[in-house]
Design a protein around this nucleic acid. Structure first.
Lengths: 180, 180
DNA sequence: GAGTCTATTTATAAATT
DNA sequence: TAATTTATAAATAGACT
């Protein structure tokens, strides 16, 4: 009889460093991003939370995921009753899951096409450009005296500033032009 | 010999509906949020992406996670060389993972204490209040004519609007007072 | 209520189609 | 170049501390 295993199955990878093989890296990005959306969706459903995720690929392409609203829309598109009590193992549920995945892809495309997220994508890309020169957290964050932060960039900067303030050894920071 | 199994082990749960037992729901929220942070962190490390997550618990308490900057700070705190090539299975790496988890918790606390995210938390809570009256995606989104969206709330609204525009059967939406 | 331990479910790396 | 398959790694529900 044929006891030879057909594949080596899942192999352990080092999650503490970047995958250098570009092909593998792209496949991993796609698979794990999908997995992250699923986990996020489940967290929201199980615990009744709201959630938003933004991912910027190295090229600056933005991906996003939000819950529960995408789910609400999915139910609408699939004509599934919001209070449905179907068991998650059923055939219909597998179908639903696929549809939701499709819809998430559509969400990404839609928001990307509109150029809407490009706005943020560009801002982050600019930040990244600066970061590659000098680490962001080594730059001074000042003039953020109130908490009425208007956008993602400032939110992140503010957050880092706060962490920085709590470090035993404060990081000597200074602002370098963020937009050039 | 004692063949009796000590526990029933992991049991399957229905991920298509909210956990009704509050104690279990809180445990699940804590465990899965941690898991989501880990997955997010790995995605960023493996694929070289930037990522931000916002989670609002039903009570409006905000949690956040951002990468790679938190990692950069973690390395600093742990005095680990950024270009370290240690294998992820090593003892030191387990230690590092724990420290990063700790730091993520600190991040949440820090940003929460400052009242910074409370701003958003309140906005989302207000949105939620409206949503419970009438689903958000059933409300009209208008006057968002440009893409220079100033905050999270508008970003979400804009996103939903765009999805809405692509649906075969447009949702008849209208704005209800968002802040009362 | 946070951490540990099983047993099991779930995610996914690599191969394959 | 994107789906499917296989085998294994990783996450986690429930019980216990």
């Amino acid at each position: 009889m044929d006891n030879k295993k057909q594949t080596k199955g899942r192999q352990r990878i080092d999650t503490s460093k970047k995958r250098e093989n570009e092909e593998k890296r792209l496949v991993t990005f796609s698979k794990r991003r999908t997995g992250l959306y699923k986990k996020s969706s489940e967290l929201c459903t199980l615990c009744g939370t709201q959630l938003a995720i933004l991912i910027f690929s190295p090229s600056g392409k933005p991906f996003s995921f939000a819950h529960p609203n995408i789910e609400v829309i999915a139910r609408r598109v699939l004509e599934i009753n919001p209070q449905s009590n179907e068991n998650s193992d059923g055939v219909m549920d597998a179908y639903r899951r696929n549809k939701i995945t499709e819809l998430n892809e559509k969400l990404t495309i839609v928001s990307d096409e509109g150029g809407y997220e490009k706005e943020w994508g560009m801002k982050l890309a600019q930040m990244e450009k600066v970061r590659q020169n000098k680490l962001l957290c080594e730059q001074k964050i000042h003039e953020l005296s109130d908490y009425n932060v208007p956008n993602m960039k400032d939110w992140l900067l503010e957050l880092y500033g706060r962490i920085n303030n709590r470090l035993e050894e404060p990081i000597d920071t200074q602002v370098v032009g963020m937009y050039n």
